[in-house]
Simulated scan of single mutants.
Amino acid sequence: MLRIGSTVLGASDVQRAARFWSRALGYVPRDEIEETWAVLVPSDGVGQHVSIMLSETPVQEKPRVHLDLYTATPAEEIDRLLGLGATRVDWQDYPPDPDFTVLADPEGNRFCVIDKR
């Protein structure tokens, strides 16, 4: 049987990406953050890992894989994430009454904040 152990995000600056995602998710580095690789784990030890890998691949405008972050307080979390360095993405494909907002991390990786109220 398989299970997902880590979602890997590409970054041109692993240190910067690791700082953002650590603060965004409340995660901590599993080991020392390297120039080319970092693994972040939940501070309470429960949940999926997020890894950051050095990459020179350009950011995809419409990525095939992305993170969905669930919250019951979307406006507050979006403001917090913007304060950490995320940016809003001008997303052309929003449905008429979306329950999500598309943001990008400081590296340009897209992710969604999902309203779970």
Rank of each mutant, 00 (worst) to 15 (best):
V39A: 12
A38E: 00
R16H: 10
D31R: 14
P29V: 01
R23L: 14
A11C: 09
Y27V: 02
L25A: 07
L25H: 05
Q15A: 14
R23A: 12
Y27Q: 02
E34N: 09
I33Q: 05
E32S: 07
E35R: 15
P29I: 00
F20G: 02
V28Q: 12
A17R: 03
A18H: 03
R19P: 07
A24C: 08
D31N: 10
W21E: 13
G26N: 02
S12M: 04
V28H: 09
V14M: 02
W37S: 13
E34W: 12
W37F: 10
L40A: 12
A38P: 03
D31A: 13
R16L: 13
L40S: 09
V28E: 12
V39Q: 12
G10F: 07
W21P: 04
R23D: 10
P29G: 03
S22C: 04
F20D: 02
R23Y: 09
L25S: 15
F20E: 00
R16Q: 14
A18K: 05
T36V: 09
E32K: 08
Y27M: 01
R30W: 15
T36H: 12
V39G: 14
W21Y: 13
F20I: 01
D13A: 06
G26Q: 01
W21M: 06
W37G: 15
R23W: 07
L40G: 11
E34C: 14
Y27A: 02
E35P: 13
P29M: 02
G10N: 07
V28Y: 04
E34G: 11
F20V: 00
G10K: 06
G10T: 15
S22F: 00
G26Y: 01
Q15K: 05
S12G: 12
R23C: 09
Q15V: 05
E35M: 15
R30S: 13
D13N: 11
R16M: 12
S22R: 00
L40Y: 06
V28L: 05
Y27R: 01
G26I: 00
W21K: 04
V39T: 09
D13M: 09
R23T: 08
A24E: 06
W21Q: 10
